[in-house]
Design a protein around this nucleic acid. Structure first.
Lengths: 201, 201
DNA sequence: AATGAAATTATTGTACACAAATTTATATTT
DNA sequence: AAATATAAATTTGTGTACAATAATTTCATT
């Protein structure tokens, strides 16, 4: 049986979300007692949470990070490598069930709220990443999500044009087992995403 | 001024090294009190240390990990992608000083104790990784080192044949700014390393 | 006013106590 | 004997106190 949310877990989530919502400013010093008071818990779970947030790079030296464009570029360079590899595996091995899941994500992204669309598009990528069947790769990408989200959050609240079409093209390449093409499409897709984020910065 | 080793840091190092030296068996449950007693500190720094070890994958669910061949393959697949990218950047941008450092690593690996040789060879890779100038990439590879080392430790105490020559070929490609070739050489180098580890498993 | 030393305050690190949860052992029933 | 319930133990989660360190302020001296 899995234990329900511990104080450490909720502390982590609340602090993370507060950073996303810019309740804490970029570069702001986060002290354990202050956070503990705000959350109504002791320092211990707050410490746990802060360590986890430092892991994913949302906090650095007890301060909310302020990612630069270079940080985002670095993240995307790694992401392009890893997701490029993943989509190649997807094109080679993915079965019809997962392909249908991808199709559903694309459909879901054609309607609904901004949040729902963002969620569907994220799921599209997640399915491909999981298709790599490589836990090291999966974990690595997972860890980068927070920084990407933090950067995005302040930059783009609306969807980038042509994003859906690019997902469709990637899916088509997967379906046709065109590894090379799938990788190229994924990389250029991510590159466009990066450029869009940077230009609207 | 940088603070000297805290109890958490020394706990981390001691537990990590104990795992490397197989003082704790693969899969063994590590309990906080037991470790705290052995190290003569309280549970608090031990908890810190264990969390950090879980991050790098040396501990999972409070147990010493027992990496499978698939784990090692996954790690190397990611490593090949990242170091392949890094060596490309190295071939494009690396200046004469860093090139000399690489040369020194190769020379150092031709003599000395096994430990010294291993250290020199690791430094060769580290220099190239740092040449990527991408902190996300650098951190990601850094995190993977422990698992690689743990696996290696039990497999190869002696150096693999032709390793030096491969490093020399990579260096030559870097020196000549042959990006494509440098990447290909690095990937096949790592592939051979992986195969050697697996076959002597 | 600028500098630097001393004192004050704030913050983090560590130990420890107790509670909650998990695991293991024991007893009971079928 | 197997299955289930109950009790004991171990282990982890959390709060709190105090110590060590780092940051800030105050104040004296030039």
């Amino acid at each position: 049986m899995k234990q329900q949310h511990s104080a450490s877990d909720t502390a982590y989530e609340k602090i993370r979300d507060a950073i996303f919502e810019e309740k804490y400013e970029r570069g702001e010093k986060l002290t354990e007692v202050k956070l503990a008071d705000e959350l109504g818990v002791s320092r211990t779970p707050v410490r746990d949470a802060m360590r986890k947030l430092e892991e994913e790079g949302l906090i650095k030296d007890k301060r909310v990070i302020n990612p630069t464009i270079k940080d985002l570029m670095n993240t995307f360079d790694v992401r392009m490598l890893l997701e490029g590899f993943a989509v190649r595996q997807a094109a080679r091995y993915m079965g019809p069930d997962r392909v249908k899941d991808l199709q559903r994500c694309i459909e879901a992204a054609k309607q609904g709220t901004t949040e729902e669309i963002m969620e569907a598009n994220k799921e599209f990528h997640d399915i491909i990443v999981r298709a790599s069947n490589n836990d090291v790769l999966i974990d690595t990408i997972e860890r980068m999500q927070s920084v990407i989200f933090l950067f995005r959050r302040t930059v783009v609240y609306h969807q980038r044009p042509r994003l859906i079409e690019e997902h469709e093209a990637i899916l088509k390449a997967i379906r046709n087992h065109e590894e090379e093409k799938a990788e190229a499409l994924m990389k250029s897709h991510l590159k466009k995403d990066l450029d869009f984020s940077i230009h609207s910065w």
